[in-house]
Nucleic acid binder design. Structure first.
Length: 538
DNA sequence: TTAGGGTTAG
């Protein structure tokens, strides 16, 4: 196609028309989530005659990244002419948009060592990824590069820098940059306001907004929603939320779906489930149609309450508004059905998905493990390793180690714990140690479990000692149970959990005197156990 | 090419 462009002018308009059609078709592959159509278009271009025009190749690179086909994306990228300035922008931009932030930063470093000319269009993408990774050191290096190339006054680049420093928690640095700019635009203001709001400085964010008129700027809905997000995620203070709604109204802004979603997700994160439900209803009363974000925010509320009636109702909304195939929504649905006991429904949804995220895989593996389908959980993990290994993360291992532990697959669990570190480079966290202690303990390897705790590079927490104590109960090891219970009581003196379990061990062994002594002590100290319940309020 | 809301844990 390139050679035709160059040699035959009359064909230009024809090919431009075809290429714009092609760009639109690739776009529709993305919106219809059809990788196979994208592949067919790619194949068509190969058959029609190489090389593919750079801008079409760039679109296909983005499509492959969107579907997690990084190797295909890379092959196509390598086929784009080295002189084309869009080459790196396409790859780094796609990585950044799709949340592959480490890959975006790595590609940017590669671009630097490749000696490619720095193009200002690539900087906002890499700065966004650095911010999401909260990697201030790399951010400062890129800032130096920006300075060396004299690009610090480009509005997109400087907005990217303000956003990057804010996301890295260096909001004072973001403010310095903002103040030093000869001209500021609304995007930059919003990056700064969002930085204050996300770093807990909501009052400062409000001050900036109140004094923004002197800069010739006026806040928009994004500004207000940034502030709302800061408020609603810090305890869900209802009166403050109303205050922001009032301030928005005073400035002539009606809350939109983002404003409402922000409030809902704040309530869910603060375990204020009924407030979340009523806010969702209120949003509907205001005539705001829920979208994929609002639906995936409310679903965890249903999961945490095992409220399958409400969960199914929300699933109905997702279908009605046409977002049931959105990867966030489907992942949240898989989790909701699994947590509400409908594991078959979770399996069906998981099987139908064309695109899966790490959350989808992890929720499915975890759901299967918790329902006792441990071999199926391991098979799903093996499938993930084959089909989508780049999405494997620390939660995948928490899930698969739980499966091994519940399924008494001690050796497999031990080898996976090693594999996590050696193959995937994931450093074990407290929860992984808790899983491994549980695994070894249930398998009767109590001494090994205790040795593991002693060798841990960090302080063991309640879950780690709790796992050991639970295993001691199964195997009737009073001596070690006393050690574990002592640690539990040191860590949480007001909780009777460890003591109660220990008294059960004494009773199991027929030592009724010690069992009674312990229970009396718990009663004397007025320690209370939170009572669980298995029903949901109507 | 930039700014606001979204899913998983012992």
């Amino acid at each position: 196609m390139y050679s035709l462009f160059r040699t035959s002018a009359p064909y230009c308009s024809l090919f431009l028309c075809l290429s714009s059609t092609c760009i639109r078709l690739i776009g529709s592959c993305s919106s219809n989530q059809s990788l196979s159509c994208g592949r067919a278009l790619h194949a068509h271009h190969i058959v029609a005659g190489p090389p593919i025009a750079a801008h079409i190749a760039s679109k296909l690179v983005a499509l492959y990244v969107e579907f997690g086909q990084l190797a295909d994306a890379r092959r196509l990228f390598d086929g784009i002419p080295h002189t084309d300035p869009r080459r790196w922008t396409a790859l780094i931009g796609a990585f950044s948009r799709e949340g592959c932030h480490a890959e975006a930063v790595r590609a940017f470093c590669e671009m630097q060592s490749d000696g490619s000319r720095l193009d200002r269009f690539v900087l906002p993408s890499v700065l966004k990824s650095i911010g999401r990774l909260s990697d201030a050191r790399t951010g400062e290096c890129v800032h130096a590069i920006v300075f060396r190339h004299g690009m610090q006054e480009d509005s997109f680049v400087s907005c990217g820098l303000v956003d990057m420093y804010s996301k890295c928690g260096l909001v004072a640095r973001a403010r310095e940059l903002f103040d030093a700019m000869p001209e500021r635009d609304l995007a930059m203001l919003n990056a700064l306001v969002s930085g204050y709001a996300q770093n807990g400085l909501v009052e400062t964010a409000l001050e900036v907004v109140e004094n923004v008129g002197s800069l010739g700027l006026s806040p928009d809905l994004v500004t207000w929603n940034s502030i709302m997000s800061g408020f609603s995620h810090k305890g869900g203070d209802t009166s403050m939320i109303s205050r922001i709604f009032e301030m928005m109204a005073a400035h002539g802004f009606e809350p939109d779906v983002v404003s409402w979603t922000s409030v809902i997700s704040g309530f869910v994160k603060n375990f204020r489930i009924h407030d979340a439900y009523s806010t969702f209803s209120e949003m509907l009363v205001h005539g705001i149609c829920p979208n994929a974000a609002s639906i995936s925010s409310i679903l965890p509320a249903c999961s945490s309450m095992a409220d399958w009636r409400r969960g199914k109702e929300i699933h109905g909304y997702a279908v009605a508004v046409g977002v049931e195939r959105n990867v966030f929504v489907t992942s949240a649905l898989v989790d909701m059905y699994a947590k509400c006991g409908f594991i078959s429904q979770a399996r069906i949804l998981f099987g139908q998905m064309r695109q899966r995220s790490s959350v989808t895989w992890n929720s499915m593996i975890f759901g299967l493990a918790n329902h006792g389908f441990c071999s199926e959980a391991i098979e799903t993990f093996t499938r993930m390793e084959k089909e989508d290994s780049r999405r494997i993360d620390h939660l995948t291992f928490t899930s698969v180690l739980t499966a091994c532990s519940h399924g008494r697959m001690t050796e497999l669990g031990q080898s996976l714990f090693k594999r996590m570190q050696e193959v995937y480079g994931i450093k074990p966290r407290l929860e992984h140690y808790a899983c491994l202690v549980d695994l070894l303990g249930r398998g009767g390897l109590l001494k090994e479990a205790h040795d593991l705790i002693k060798a841990m590079p960090m302080e063991p927490d309640l879950f780690v000692w709790g796992a050991l104590l639970g295993a001691c109960r199964i195997h009737g090891n009073i001596e070690l149970a006393e050690v574990a219970a002592q640690h539990l009581s040191d860590l949480e003196p007001r909780s009777p959990g460890g003591g109660l379990l220990l008294s059960c061990l004494y009773a199991d062994a027929g030592d009724w005197a010690d069992a009674a002594r312990l229970k009396r002590r718990i009663k004397r100290k007025k320690m209370r156990k939170f009572l669980g319940r298995s029903w949901v309020e109507p």
